[in-house]
Design a protein around this nucleic acid. Structure first.
Length: 924
RNA sequence: AGAAGCGUAGCUCAGUGGCAAGAGCGUCUGCCUUACAAGCAGAGGGUCGUGAGUUCGAGCCUCACCGCUUCUACCA
């Protein structure tokens, strides 16, 4: 049989996915047992425009581990795939593509553009799906969904209408985050605050009553204000006014001087005595000439800047609130294009906001009103998608009231109906819900779900599923059903449809079989950056429309960092493409590395070394199987799976031990996955397979397995090794699907695929066998250690004497003596009752066993003495600690009885070893 | 500004109040021992951030401090 010495992942990875998919192994219908438990997950839908990034690779791997594990446990598993229409991102991609062809989106028109998007999706939209197949995602492709599908669009419409009818959706003119780059409103969550180096400009506003026409128009320069301001700041501030021969001035400080064109008040704190005298007075707004009032508002902090704030109600959220409170005028001086409007003086009209800032500053300087410029770094909102500075703008938009929806979603997590892992994330979740703000859901885009609303010529809003229903609603509101209706052109925020994902994908609002069977889902595996965007909103919608939480458990997977522990970002240029990684190391290795790195933390630094060791592990699995196939293939009589052999020969110590270790590993893997401790499952499998199975069991099997004769005993060992290997591959399959399928298919097996092979359940441990094996491995290791310490070449044989105090130890040594000799390369192993003092021997002790290795002439006595004394010191120190503890009456009285007993036993063992070591040193 | 999390071997991280604090990688030594050099065998490496407290007993619990990270809110 030809089997390469190195595992070549490409081969197996290309072959098995089509086989799995064509045979429908991943459809829940594959599980035909009627009362099988149902296990459901919906995939966090990636953007249809996107490519999978490292975060997806991790996210999908963990979901696939769960799905495959549960499926092998006999559950009816549905892992539902799909993609998100990603309004902004997709519109940008297609717009850019059209632009490259020389076509302007606006010339094309809305309907044609949307056609183009669908065309684009048909041709280029399959990337995600192809990549998911490479990852090995065991999703049910027959149930794949897209957020713009007809069914999901119906769900969106239905939800919108119902929420509107309940008064939870409203339309109105409010301050929103406007993205001038995208020409749409965006939600608070889509605004990213970034520190920007800027300035605070201190500007003098002349007091109205005293103001001369000249200063108001700015045609004549005011002299000496800056000096007066400096003087004012020197002394005690009784009054905040600047008194000059040309009249009194107040000073405001601002980071956005261009917005002064829209100022309609100047505000100060009611408790600020410096400005109390200003009540009832007005200022003349420089450059504009508008007379505006003073207001008092507690939001203004006395200590910040000058304690006076210019108020621009149409261009700042706080000022907007003040404007509402004090009934101020709202003057929009910045347009949706971020240009100065006609509401501003002619000179500035049409200027870009940043150009206008420069012009305003220059003109104030000219007029002598600019008193101070401070450097200042402050947080400025940027549009997450376009990167442009967000403009707070007064705009008519649709909003969703969140408080009434948030309350049940909060409660569901507090009372544990949905469990968030890790626990710390649920605090973040709760905190956000407790302070939730209304959500601006309308977007001025073309690609997305149209808001189901109509307007009559007089501006009455009719929300309805379609025009027919709209006319019915007109009638029911006693309006003319033939009134001309203009449909709304705004679309909904993409997250408005994503929040319905756990039930819209199952057919809602229809009462489908799937919906009944699969809702609520069991687990949502997702990333922490979409807890607010997505998880919290799904919770709200699930509770609202399904009356139950959308998922029992939310598992937050780690954020994948680069090898230096830095967040990956395009600007830093440290983004790692998962497909490159999967290509280089193999899918199974990459999956294993990601699973093994999924520890309790919220981040995960992806190191090459982890991928390498995972690749080496895959190779180890390959070669262990290669060994079995080459040496045990001769007993494959038929394809019947090989069970644990008990009849041909009595199981040896090694046999009992490996079965016990397998049971231990099986139990640990099952409980680790049950509790989402992915790294523990991976570590357990790695250690069991490599350290127990390969390092010891396969090694111990060699004399039997490579024997040309097939005795009953040899046959039994072969059958046992095949059994353990088959069980190991099955345990490994959820983490490493391709290599395990590839190898399992070559072993005697039942069933078409390892994907549906029964996952092992843990049998009983054999404590005695484990203890005895520990004695054996300890002895072999000690002998190897002696060889290594004295530089005995592997080719050189040595002799050894051993004497065990306990009868059980003696029995183990006798039973395993051939193996001890083979593994430690001992020519003659003498088992004696006591070792007499003998010069020229290396002495040591392991557990209750004394060892002597005659190495006449090879021993440096000084060094050897130092070595033994080193051991002695170490043991004595430990014993000292134990004795101190045991002599403490409080410890003996209060500590658990087992702990005390253990300490005593350990102390006794140490005393024994110390005595032996002392004798050995003495004898030298 | 608030909130949360993290500081354990050279690196990345595990670690239920109680065995002698672990793993992978890296380092050092010796091996092409018939499954695997992507391997085998052996070794070295730790005042568990600092300081106090609780406890018979603390890497783990409490408090303070230092350092790093993230999230939320945003004051002109």
């Amino acid at each position: 049989m030809e089997i390469p010495k190195q595992y070549e992942p490409k081969d197996a990875e290309g072959r098995w996915y089509p086989f799995w998919e064509q045979n429908n192994f991943f459809a829940p219908e594959t599980q035909t047992e009627a009362d099988a438990p149902v296990f459901t997950m919906v995939i966090p839908p990636p953007n249809v425009t996107g490519f999978l990034h490292m975060g997806h690779a991790l996210n999908h791997t963990l979901q696939d581990v769960l799905a495959r594990w549960r499926r092998m446990n006999g559950d009816k598993v549905l892992w539902l795939p799909g993609t998100d229409h990603a309004g902004i991102a997709t519109q940008m991609v297609v717009t850019r593509q059209l632009a490259a062809e020389g076509v302007d989106r606006r010339d094309l028109g809305r309907d044609k553009f949307i056609e183009k998007v669908w065309e684009w999706k048909a041709h280029s939209g399959g990337t995600i799906q192809r990549q998911m197949r490479i990852l090995g995602d065991s999703v049910d492709w027959s149930r794949e969904r897209f957020t713009m599908d007809e069914g999901l669009s119906n769900a969106v419409q239905e939800v919108f209408v119902r929420l509107y009818d309940e008064g939870l959706i409203y339309r109105g003119e409010y301050m929103v985050n406007w993205s001038p780059g995208l020409q749409t409103a965006i939600s608070d969550l889509e605004v990213e605050m970034k520190p920007v180096k800027g300035n605070i400009w201190h500007i003098a506003y002349p007091i109205g009553a005293d103001a001369q026409d000249s200063t108001a128009s700015g045609s004549e320069r005011v002299e000496g204000l800056a000096e007066a301001y400096a003087a004012l700041n020197e002394g005690e501030q009784k009054s905040g006014l600047l008194k000059t021969p040309q009249g009194d001035f107040v000073v405001v400080a601002t980071t956005r001087p261009e917005t002064m064109l829209g100022d309609t008040a100047v505000a100060f704190n009611p408790e600020d005595e410096r400005y109390a005298e200003l009540i009832g007075k007005t200022v003349i707004l420089p450059l504009v000439g508008r007379e505006i009032q003073f207001i008092q508002d507690a939001i203004v902090e006395k200590e910040f800047g000058t304690g006076l704030v210019k108020v621009t109600p149409a261009h700042d959220p706080n000022d907007f609130a003040m404007g509402k409170r004090h009934n101020l005028e709202f003057i929009q001086v910045i347009s949706k294009e971020a240009k100065i409007t006609d509401a501003a003086p002619e000179k500035y009209r049409g200027m870009d906001r940043f150009a206008a800032r420069k012009a305003v500053v220059a003109d104030l300087e000219e007029a002598g009103l600019l008193l101070k410029i401070e450097d200042y770094t402050h947080n400025v909102g940027h549009c997450q998608r376009s990167g442009q500075v967000v403009e707070p703008l007064l705009s008519t938009q649709w909003f969703l009231k969140m408080k009434p929806l948030a309350e049940p979603a909060l409660q569901a997590v507090l009372d544990g109906r949905t469990k968030i892992i890790p626990e710390s994330v649920s605090k973040i979740y709760c905190n956000w819900l407790e302070n939730i703000q209304d959500w601006c859901v309308s977007r001025q885009l073309w690609w997305g779900h149209l808001i189901p609303a109509y307007y009559t010529p007089d501006g009455t809003i009719i929300v309805a599923r379609d025009e027919v229903e709209a006319r019915e609603r007109l009638l029911s509101e006693r309006l003319d059903p033939n009134t001309p209706l203009t449909p709304e052109t705004d679309v909904l925020d993409t997250w408005f449809s994503s929040q319905l994902w756990p039930f819209s994908t199952l057919g809602w609002p229809e009462e489908t079989e799937d919906l009944k069977k699969f809702y609520p889902t069991d687990v949502l595996v997702t990333a922490q950056d979409i807890i607010f965007f997505w998880v919290a909103r799904m919770m709200m919608m699930g509770l609202k429309f399904m009356g139950d939480v959308p998922f029992r458990t939310v598992y937050i997977n780690a954020l994948v960092l680069d090898p230096q522990g830095q967040k990956m970002s395009k600007t830093k240029g440290n983004v790692i493409d998962p497909l490159d990684v999967f290509d280089k190391y193999g899918t199974d290795a990459a999956r294993f590395a990601l699973t093994a790195a999924s520890t309790t933390g919220l981040t995960l630094a992806l190191q090459e070394s982890k991928l390498e060791s995972a690749r080496n592990f895959a190779n180890k699995i390959w070669n262990a199987t290669r060994f079995v196939l080459l040496n045990c293939g001769d007993i494959f009589e038929d394809q019947e799976p090989i069970e644990w052999e008990t009849t041909l020969s009595e199981p040896s110590l090694a046999d009992r031990w490996i079965l016990s270790r397998l049971n231990a590993a099986t139990g640990e893997v099952n409980s680790a996955l049950q509790e989402y401790r992915f790294h523990e499952a991976a570590a357990t499998l790695y250690q069991f397979f490599w350290n127990d199975f390969c390092d010891w069991y396969i090694e111990l099997s060699k004399p039997f397995v490579t024997d040309k004769e097939i005795t009953d005993e040899n046959r039994a060992v072969k059958r046992r090794i095949i059994h353990i290997l088959e069980r190991s591959l099955t345990l490994l399959h959820p983490l490493m699907p391709y290599i395990t399928e590839e190898l399992w298919q070559r072993l005697p097996h039942k069933g078409e695929t390892i994907c549906l092979n029964q996952f092992p359940t843990a049998g009983a441990r054999d404590e005695q066998a484990e203890q005895q094996m520990e004695l054996f491995t300890g002895l072999v290791s000690k002998l190897r250690n002696i060889r290594s310490t004295f530089n005995i070449a592997p080719s050189v044989s040595i002799n050894a004497k051993v004497a065990a105090a306990e009868a059980t130890s003696q029995a183990v040594i006798n039973a395993m003596s051939a193996q001890i000799k083979r593994l430690a390369r001992i020519e003659n192993l003498e088992v004696v009752t006591a070792i007499e003092i003998q010069k020229g021997s290396v002495r040591d002790v392991v557990s209750d066993i004394e060892i002597a290795v005659p190495l006449e002439g090879l021993i440096d006595f000084e060094k050897e003495k130092a070595r033994l004394e080193g051991n002695l010191t170490k043991l004595s120190k430990e014993l000292e600690g134990l004795q101190k503890r045991l002599s403490n009456a409080d410890f003996v009285a209060r500590a658990a009885a087992e702990v005390v007993a253990e300490s005593r036993a350990r102390a006794a063992e140490l005393e024994d070893q110390i005595t032996k070591l002392k004798a050995m040193i003495e004898a030298m």
